[in-house]
Design a protein around this nucleic acid. Structure first.
Lengths: 210, 210
DNA sequence: AGTATAATGTCAGTGTATGACAAAAGTCAA
DNA sequence: TTGACTTTTGTCATACACTGACATTATACT
């Protein structure tokens, strides 16, 4: 505003001023929103509150995020999508169990990178039923995509078997993530997941019942 | 209104007129809502549309249902709750696998009773992302309750083990329900579930990998 | 019948979300 | 720097989901 002169040199780099501002605005919204959600609770925080905090109109909020929920969970969906990319690197000759182990391990690694970020979102989500459903959904919504990808890549794969196995692995992953986020001590999601999968794969089952 | 005279005899039976009217109103709302959801889609149907269809004010709608979503999924939550009641009949000496098998079998039986009703709700839910998340949640939200009940009833139970097992069984149940509702042919959820569980319990795993 | 009680309608208000259009800011070339 | 062009933002209007408050109507009870 009252600056002497705008210097039109230095960083032109890769992104334009416009791009940088957009990126910053989105980051600002997300930061303010998470802070407010954490302080006052998700439902107690209105879009207007968030917009006020970053000094923009509430209409502009919706130009950066599709919904209030998107601010909280869009990040998780992205992590989920990124993690699933590893599917394309799986050999078509791999066994379903090997492929699934790889998929969910890379997903776990992706999650691991964002622990604190995920944790605060998880905490907020768990305090609001309508949001915990969306959190759950953000984990499970990629299940069909994983099934499709596995089915198209693996030779001699059975659709129903794949679908069932993916659901089982997904459940293991979900419980691992929940435990991991609930307890500060559990810093290593990957080994937590592997423990679960190992346990699941070596369970002495089918004998001690019926 | 223009009736000659209200007869104050005949059916006094068990419920009062007031109770019967309330029950009828709720049933009317639910029926109209499901019909409209099916015809126009969930999001394309407003509360006002539903209220108009049963000739009441939209305010009254909310005296029977907590939300629009409640009309669609309250039924499922109820079935879920009813099915879980069987938990209390489990002996404290039962093995977790036996107990879980029983719990989910009785849940399946409860679902089975309401196939067509569940099917239309499932179809509507699947057409709307925000609602499919709630559908998913209505299945999974009872997971903690099952864990708690099992843990308190079974001797020598390990919390983490229970939690993990319940999640696995829940995933099997979910996939069974989905397959059951997707295909008209699959009329028997109980055997579908048992097939899945048997498959899961006898899987040749842990050997053919790593 | 008349009074108490419960259900319903009306009205006003909050919050989420979206379309339309005007105002402001960034971009680029002369 | 100016001026034209594009993108972003603000403002306004609107729709829908939901809630509280209060008046109105219908059932219940004696």
């Amino acid at each position: 505003m009252s600056d002497s002169k705008p210097s039109q040199h230095e960083e032109k780099k890769t992104t334009s001023l416009r791009e940088r501002k957009k990126h910053q605005a989105k980051a600002d919204i997300e930061e303010a929103a998470l802070r407010l959600f954490h302080e006052k609770g998700y439902e107690q925080t209105s879009i207007q509150n968030i917009a006020d905090a970053v000094m923009m109109s509430s209409r502009t909020f919706f130009r950066y995020f599709a919904s209030k929920e998107d601010v909280l969970l869009g990040f998780i969906r992205k992590a989920q999508r990124d993690g699933i990319r590893s599917l394309n690197q799986i050999e078509t000759t791999a066994l379903p169990h090997v492929a699934l182990r790889e998929v969910f391990e890379s997903l776990a690694i992706e999650y691991q990178k964002q622990r604190s970020n995920l944790q605060i979102r998880y905490q907020v989500a768990m305090q609001t039923p309508s949001i915990s459903s969306m959190f759950l959904y953000s984990l499970l919504e990629s299940e069909p995509a994983i099934c499709d990808a596995l089915y198209s890549r693996l030779e001699n794969a059975n659709v129903n078997e794949i679908r069932f196995l993916v659901a089982i692995y997904m459940a293991s992953f979900r419980v691992s993530v929940e435990k991991w986020l609930e307890n500060e001590k559990n810093s290593d999601l990957v080994s937590l997941l592997n423990d679960h999968l190992d346990y699941f794969l070596t369970m002495p089952i089918g004998n001690n019942r019926l």
